[in-house]
Design a protein around this nucleic acid. Structure first.
Ligand SMILES: [Zn+2]
Ligand SMILES: [Zn+2]
Ligand SMILES: [Zn+2]
Ligand SMILES: [Zn+2]
Lengths: 135, 135
DNA sequence: ATAAACCTTGGAGTATGGTCTAAGGTCAAC
DNA sequence: GTTGACCTTAGACCATACTCCAAGGTTTAT
C-alpha cells in the first residue's frame, strides 16, 4: 500500500491534488492506517492514472467523474454508451476550435490593416476598429 | 449624460457588469450626480464599446486594460506598439488552437478504436486506453 | 531523544468574468 | 403621498482546478 506522498510521486501530481480529487469524489484510498494516513492500493493507483490520462486528452474533472462511473459499471454499459460520451466531447472541442478560429481571423484582419510604422498611433486602424460599435 | 441603466441597455451588458468593469479599472463614469448616481458621457460610452469590441475578438479583461492604456496614450505610442500587441495575442491563440487540435486528435483516435456496439463494455478500447500509464 | 520528513484537517487564496443579494436611498408618476 | 422603477454599497456566490497555510500528530533515522 502506498502513502499519499508515494502515490503523488508515482503519478507526478501533488499530494494536495490527490486530496483535492478525493474531496471531489474522484479517488479515495481503500484504507487508512491507525494514524489516519491514507493508504492506496494498486487499484487506487490505477484509477489515478486513469484520471491523469483522461485529463491529458482534454476531459474536465467533471467529465472524468462521469467517465469513472462508466468504467466502474462497465458490465452494465455498452461500447455505444462510452463512444457516445467521447463523441459528445469531440463536438464540444470542435465548437471551441471554431470559436478560436473566428477570433484568430478577426485578430489577423486587425493586424493586417495596421501599418505597423513607428509614427504616433493617432491614426491606427486597430484602435479605430475596436472603437466602432460592436455588431 | 447616461445613467448606468441607460448605458447598460445601450451596450447590452448588465449594470453589474459595468460596475464590475469599474472595480477593475476599465471604465469609470466621468461624473456623479448629487445622489451619487453614476453619469456617463459619450466618451465613456465610447470606451465601453471599445471594451466590448475587444472582448468579442478574444481579448481578456486584463489585455483590454493594456489596450486601453495604449489607446489613451496613443499620441506617444506607435502603430508598431499596437500591432505587436495584437500579434502577440495571435500567437497565444495559435497555441490554444494547437492544444485543442492535439486533444481533438487524441479523442478521435479513442473514438475510432471503439466498436460502438451494444454489448457490455468490458472490452472497450476507450476504457483500456485511458487506463494505461500516461506517457 | 530529538530532528527531519512525513502525515492529518479545515479553510483561505489564486485567476477569470461575472451574477446575485441585502439593506437602503432617490425619483417620477399618479 | 405612496408605489414602482431606478440607484447605491459591500460582500457572497458560481464554476474550474488547484495551491498554500496553520496547527498539530506520526514515523524514521541518527
Ligand atoms: Zn499606422
Ligand atoms: Zn496601426
Ligand atoms: Zn466494443
Ligand atoms: Zn468501446
Amino acid at each position: 500500500m502506498l502513502k499519499i506522498g508515494d502515490l503523488a510521486k508515482l503519478a507526478k501530481v501533488s499530494r494536495d491534488t490527490l486530496r483535492f480529487y478525493e474531496k471531489h469524489g474522484l479517488i479515495a484510498p481503500s484504507e487508512r492506517n491507525q494514524a489516519g494516513y491514507r493508504l492506496y492500493s494498486d487499484t487506487d493507483a490505477h484509477r489515478v492514472s486513469f484520471i491523469i490520462s483522461a485529463k491529458e486528452v482534454g476531459f474536465t474533472l467533471n467529465e472524468i467523474h462521469q467517465l469513472l462511473e462508466l468504467e466502474v459499471t462497465k458490465d452494465e454499459k455498452s461500447c455505444q454508451d462510452i463512444k457516445q460520451f467521447v463523441d459528445a466531447k469531440i463536438d464540444l472541442v470542435n465548437q471551441r476550435l471554431a470559436d478560436m478560429q473566428r477570433i484568430k481571423k478577426s485578430l489577423q484582419t486587425l493586424s493586417n490593416a495596421c501599418c505597423g510604422g513607428e509614427e504616433p498611433a493617432t491614426h491606427c486602424t486597430i484602435l479605430e476598429a475596436l472603437s466602432e460599435q460592436p455588431s
